[in-house]
C-alpha cells in the first residue's frame, strides 16, 4: 500500500494500537477470571493468597460432573449428525445446480444462523408438544429432544462452513477422475473428501462448541432429569459470585486453547504436505 502517502490518522500504527486496546478489553475480564480461580478470597476483590481449593470443590460437585458428561455426550452426537446433514446440504447447494426446493433449502439453512434462540426454543418445544399429542412421542423432553433441536440449528453452521470450502475446491479434479472412469461416489470419496476434510473438522469443532454453549434452546425443550452444563452454570452464576465457576471457566479455557494450538499445528502441517504433494505431482506430471 502507498504507505508514504497515508495520512497520520489512518496510518497502520494507530490502527494497530486500537486493535491492541480492543483485544486487551476482550481478554481482561477472562484473564481476571482465571486469576481469581486461584484466589483464596471468595469476594475476588483482591488477591489474598494462592489456592487450588475451588478446583477441588468443583470436582467434588456431582451435579456439575454429571451435567458436563451429559453435555459432552449430547454435543458429540448432535454435532456429528449435524456435520453429516450440513455436508449433504453443502454438496447439494454447490454441486447440484437445479432441483425442486432449492430456494426453500437455501432459506431454511441460512435462517437458523440469525434466528433468535428464544424463538427457536419456543417453536421447537411447541413441535414436541404437538408430536406428543399426535404420536405419543416424546413422553417428556430430555436427551432426544435436545438432540433434535441442536442438530437443527447446528447443521446450518456446518453447512455454511463446508459449503465455503467446497466452493473453493476445484471441481475439475473430480470431473477428471470421472472422465478417467471412476464413479461419482468414488471420485467424491477419493478426491473431494480429502480436500474438504479440514472444513469437516472445523465444522465439527464449531458444532461442538455451539452445542456445549447453548442454554436457551436446551432449556425450552428439556424435561425432568436432563440438566446440561450451561443450565448448571446459569443457576450458579445467576445468584452471585461463585468461585467454582471461575475454576470451571479456566479449565474450559485451557482445554480450548490447547485444542486450538494443536489443531492449528495439524492444519498447518497438512496444508504444507498438501502443497508439497501438489508441487510434486505437477513436476512429475
Amino acid at each position: 500500500m502507498a504507505k508514504g502517502k497515508a495520512s497520520p490518522f489512518l496510518r497502520v500504527n494507530y490502527l494497530m494500537i486500537f486493535l491492541f486496546i480492543s483485544l486487551a478489553l476482550l481478554y481482561i475480564p477472562i484473564i481476571l477470571m482465571v486469576v481469581n480461580s486461584f484466589n483464596q478470597s471468595t469476594l475476588s476483590t483482591s488477591f489474598t493468597g494462592f489456592t487450588l481449593g475451588w478446583y477441588g470443590n468443583l470436582f467434588e460437585d456431582r451435579t456439575v460432573l454429571e451435567a458436563a458428561l451429559l453435555s459432552l455426550q449430547l454435543g458429540t452426537v448432535s454435532t456429528t449428525l449435524a456435520m453429516l446433514m450440513g455436508g449433504l446440504v453443502a454438496i447439494a447447494l454447490v454441486r447440484i445446480p437445479k432441483f425442486l426446493g432449492r430456494l426453500l433449502l437455501t432459506t431454511m439453512i441460512t435462517a437458523p444462523l440469525v434466528m433468535p434462540d428464544v424463538i427457536t426454543g419456543l417453536t421447537q418445544t411447541l413441535l414436541f408438544n404437538s408430536t406428543k399429542v399426535l404420536f405419543g412421542w416424546p413422553d417428556h423432553g430430555g436427551f432426544g429432544t435436545i438432540l433434535i433441536a441442536h442438530v437443527t440449528f447446528i447443521m446450518a453452521y456446518s453447512a455454511v462452513t463446508i459449503q465455503s470450502r467446497l466452493l473453493t475446491a476445484d471441481s475439475s479434479l473430480e470431473e477428471a477422475a470421472m472422465d478417467l472412469g471412476s464413479g461419482p461416489v468414488r471420485a467424491f470419496v477419493e478426491i473431494t473428501l480429502p480436500i474438504i476434510s479440514p472444513a469437516l473438522l472445523s465444522a465439527w469443532l464449531l458444532g461442538l462448541t455451539l452445542s456445549l454453549d447453548d442454554l436457551v434452546i436446551a432449556s425450552f425443550v428439556t424435561g425432568p432429569g436432563a440438566t446440561t452444563l450451561p443450565m448448571i452454570i446459569y443457576s450458579k452464576i445467576r445468584v452471585g459470585i461463585s468461585p467454582e465457576m471461575n475454576a470451571l471457566a479456566s479449565i474450559i479455557l485451557g482445554v480450548v486453547a490447547a485444542g486450538v494450538v494443536i489443531s492449528s499445528l495439524i492444519m498447518a502441517r497438512s496444508e504444507k504436505t498438501r502443497i508439497s504433494e501438489e508441487a510434486k505431482a505437477l513436476k512429475t506430471g
Binding site: 477472562i30 481476571l32 477470571m33 475476588s44 450451561p230 471457566a249 474450559i252
Partner: peptide
C-alpha cells in the same frame, strides 16, 4: 475467535466481575 470457543455464560460472568 478464541473467546467464542469458551462458554458464552462464563464470558458474561467474567464481564460481571469487572
Amino acid at each position: 475467535i478464541l473467546p467464542f470457543w469458551t462458554s458464552f455464560l462464563l464470558r458474561i460472568y467474567a464481564l460481571q466481575g469487572v
